[in-house]
Amino acid sequence: MIREFKSADLDKVMEIWLQGNEQAHNFIDSNFFKQNFDIVEMLIPMSTVYVQDLDGVKGFVGITENYISGLFVEQGYRRQGTGKALVNKAKQRYNELFVHVYKKNTDAVNFFLSQNFEIISESINEESNESELLLRCDIEHNVKIGKCAL
């Protein structure tokens, strides 16, 4: 079940965030994420966050305006539809979505491409000095065909 974030979810969301970053971004020193932990922990409640609750939080998507600031799924629940369900929840709320993904994180790049996102630019992330892609999805609501139709 996908539901809105509750303050009681914060510890589990942060655990998934840290582990997910360390697993997906082995090309970045893990201290980078540990140093940003407190900032992210403070920002999570300020964002729109949905969690996948399957007898406990197994994944989440954080959205700021129409920007996906984070999509993370617990390792044992990946490739089972959780990420897709969370992105679809975000698609229900917006006509357009954006997300940055590290270019070396090919699993994430391929996932977002499979969800009808398109790469619109490439740049260097100033904090990590790694190449990242900006992807966009235009969403057409209440239709069965179209780029990111729901």
Rank of each mutant, 00 (worst) to 15 (best):
F60W: 15
K147M: 09
V57Q: 06
I145L: 12
S30Q: 12
I63L: 11
S69R: 08
V109Q: 06
P45F: 00
E4C: 00
R79W: 03
K144D: 08
R79K: 14
I119V: 13
F111C: 08
R78A: 01
Y77R: 04
F60T: 02
F98R: 15
I119W: 02
N21E: 13
I44Q: 09
L86E: 08
Q80C: 03
L71I: 13
S114Q: 11
F98L: 13
N116W: 00
R78L: 05
N110H: 15
E65H: 10
G20A: 07
L97G: 04
N142E: 15
I119C: 05
I68N: 07
I124G: 08
G76E: 15
Q92L: 14
S128P: 15
N66Q: 15
Q75L: 05
I124E: 14
V73N: 01
E140G: 01
L71P: 10
F5Y: 15
V49M: 06
G20W: 05
Q35R: 14
Q35G: 02
E4I: 02
A108L: 09
V61T: 09
F32M: 12
K91Y: 01
N31E: 14
H25Q: 11
N105M: 01
E127H: 09
N31K: 14
L54Q: 14
W17C: 02
L18M: 11
G81A: 05
D38N: 12
G76M: 14
V109M: 08
N88E: 13
I39Q: 15
N31Q: 14
A24P: 06
N36G: 02
L71S: 07
C148P: 01
N125K: 06
E22L: 06
N105L: 00
A24L: 10
F98Q: 13
N88M: 04
F72E: 07
Q92G: 07
V40L: 12
E118C: 07
Q80G: 03
K34D: 03
G62R: 15
V13K: 12
F112M: 10
T64M: 10
L97Q: 11
E96N: 14
I120M: 09
E118V: 12
G59I: 02
L135M: 15
L86M: 09
N66A: 03
Q23G: 00
E127Q: 13
A85H: 06
H25I: 02
I139T: 06
V57A: 04
E118Q: 15
K103Y: 09
I63E: 11
G146K: 14
D29T: 04
E132N: 12
K12D: 04
L10K: 13
E41Y: 10
L10I: 13
V99F: 07
E15G: 05
V143P: 08
K34V: 00
E65S: 04
V73I: 14
G76I: 07
V49W: 03
N125M: 01
A108F: 08
F37T: 04
L54C: 04
N116L: 00
V87H: 05
H100L: 02
T64Y: 12
K34E: 09
V109W: 05
Y102L: 12
S131V: 12
A8T: 14
